Simulated assay, not measured.
Amino acid sequence: MIRDRIIKYKDKSIIELSEIFNVNAKSKAATFNIARGMLGVRGDKIQEFEKANIKIKAIRIGNNKKIKENMSFPAFKYLDIIKEEWEESKLRNIFIETKYLFVIFKENNNGQYRLFDSMFWNMSINDLDVDVKWVWDETIRRIKLNEYGRLPGSKENRVSHIRPHAKNGADTYPTWDGKKCVKKCFWLNNSYILSEIKKEINID
């Protein structure tokens, strides 16, 4: 039912959809607000989605058939993550408890992003407990070695990596050795997201 509500707007551009749903097309929340409009939701929160712990993520696929953006998650605190066990970790719980609604926009030859499709997604246990766990373990290991500048990158793991997630260089969290480091978070690799979409949807 949810996908049917979205797909009836297939091929409409972000600009066209912004006009239909009275959304500022240039705002960072434009695609989220468009999705909310397509679902017929009023107000800032989608109660049915919150009860089911479903998060909306807008995905943009370029005309080169690649996704430009990686997917970010909340910044972790250096002092907290080193005390966690994987099975009860905040990161693992996010993926265990959350389902995502991908609202997918695809770029045409004129550079316009148009609504292409949608799908529900949640991470497989294998990807979570093998690939993401490796990044999580390695992040903690390097934090304890004070290697904050070389936490796992996107070339080290096919699923996830660590990058800054801060307003600026002054937006920091304290470290276990009494210093401060810019806030960072776990990201899903854009190539991994694309591979997951391709399992369900033909993007050609």
Rank of each mutant, 00 (worst) to 15 (best):
E87P: 06
L128F: 08
S18V: 00
L145T: 07
R141M: 13
R142I: 12
R60W: 06
P174H: 09
K167C: 06
N22M: 08
F49C: 07
E84G: 04
N157E: 10
I61T: 02
K180E: 13
G62W: 07
S89T: 12
I82H: 02
D171I: 14
S72H: 13
V159T: 06
K199N: 09
N53R: 15
T98K: 05
M71S: 09
N33H: 04
L128Y: 03
S154H: 11
S195Y: 04
K51C: 07
P164Q: 07
L101M: 07
A35I: 02
V41L: 08
K144Y: 11
I54C: 04
V159F: 04
I46L: 07
Y173M: 11
F102P: 03
G43K: 08
W134K: 15
K65G: 05
K184P: 01
K106R: 11
K28R: 14
N33I: 00
E156V: 09
F95C: 05
K10H: 10
D177C: 07
I81N: 03
M123T: 00
N93D: 14
I94F: 05
I104Y: 04
S154R: 14
D44F: 11
N146A: 14
R142S: 10
N33C: 02
S124P: 05
K83D: 10
T139I: 04
V182C: 06
E97Y: 13
D177Y: 11
V23C: 06
K26N: 12
K183T: 11
K155Y: 14
K51Y: 09
F116P: 01
Y9H: 10
F76A: 00
D131P: 06
F102R: 06
Y148M: 10
A35V: 03
S154T: 11
A35E: 01
K66C: 08
M71I: 14
S89W: 12
N53A: 08
G62D: 11
F120Y: 15
F21H: 02
W86L: 10
A166F: 06
V159K: 02
F21D: 01
R3Y: 12
T139R: 01
K57D: 02
N53C: 09
L145Q: 14
W176S: 09
N64P: 06
W121P: 03
V130L: 12
W121G: 05
N110C: 08
F102Y: 12
I125K: 13
K8P: 05
I6T: 03
W121I: 08
E87N: 12
K45P: 04
D127W: 04
T175M: 09
Y173W: 13
S13L: 05
V41D: 05
I59C: 00
D204F: 15
C181E: 13
Y192P: 00
N109E: 15
K45G: 05
Y148C: 09
R114D: 03
M71D: 04
K144W: 10
H165Q: 09
